[in-house]
């Protein structure tokens, strides 16, 4: 498969049967053989008879390979096989011809692409050649997440900064849970706002607690409206921040 103008990806599986045949055919040359990926190059895509080729040594356990190729906008054909010590090459599987995209303006038409082997179904990739970006003037990020993450949108907790080198992410928040019970048919207000009771007359309300002094009057009024009881809760939160460590920590 063509990954980009400079990289191809090949996968294959060789059956024991074809390996046996290779062994028979190579005879004594079998000793000391090496696995190679032989790549025929058709610069500019021209199917000239005498194409250049180069070999890539393979690990015998490899089932796929990323292949750096020299020319964009060119056709390639690969085969994997065994190279005997005397230079005899025994191909085991051959690919279709594939063509890399150009990095500049080009004129010729395309050919197919795919590496085929006698049987397929390969194991997950184990071998890898590093990646390299083609020069492209239009690489503008693929997905929103990528772009936004690298943008001016650090994701930090409320009272901390995004961790810098050696920094530590830390948030601490406080909520106030206010609960109690009254007659199931009473009317309850908290800070003047009506609050629903559970069937048994109990209630739970939670507030995110800001800094400062909070006055939270709670009142229950009997169903007939004749008795009203009030409980005033006063709560204070004070938050201080401290950072210890190297002078620039958390800056």
């Amino acid at each position: 498969m063509v990954r980009d103008p400079y990289w191809l990806h090949a996968y294959w599986e060789v059956t024991p049967r074809s390996l046996r045949r290779a062994r028979e055919s190579l005879g004594e040359g079998w000793d000391g053989h090496r696995w190679i990926l032989r790549v025929h190059v058709y610069p500019g895509g021209e199917p000239r008879a005498s194409a250049d080729h180069f070999d890539v040594a393979l690990n015998p356990d490899a089932r796929n390979w990323y292949l750096r190729v020299p020319h964009p906008s060119s056709a390639y054909e690969g085969s994997i096989g065994l190279l005997a010590r005397d230079g005899t090459y025994y191909p085991l599987a051959r690919s279709e011809r594939v063509r890399t995209p150009g990095t500049e303006v080009e004129e010729t038409a395309d050919l197919h692409w795919d590496l085929h082997a006698e049987t397929e179904v390969a194991a997950p990739a184990t071998d890898r050649i590093g990646r390299e970006l083609p020069s492209s003037e239009s690489v503008l990020g693929f997905g929103a997440s990528e772009t936004l993450q690298s943008g001016e949108a650090p994701s930090s907790g409320d009272v901390t900064r995004p961790p810098g080198e050696g920094d530590v992410r830390f948030t601490a928040e406080a909520e106030l849970i206010l609960y109690g019970s009254t007659e199931p048919d009473a009317r309850l207000t908290i800070q003047g706002k009506p609050v629903a009771l559970r069937r048994d007359g109990t209630f739970t309300v939670r507030f995110q607690l800001p800094d400062g002094l909070q006055r939270i009057p709670c009142s229950a009024t009997s169903a007939d409206g004749r008795v009203r009881r009030t409980i005033d809760l006063v709560v204070e939160r004070r938050t201080d921040f401290r950072t210890e460590g190297p002078e620039d920590a958390g800056r």
């Binding site: 990954r3 995209p101 990646r131 690489v139 990020g141």
Partner: peptide, 12 residues
Amino acid sequence: GRGGFAEVWLND
């Protein structure tokens, strides 16, 4: 995609 070709959908 990133790179302008197939590397987002074909990598290790």
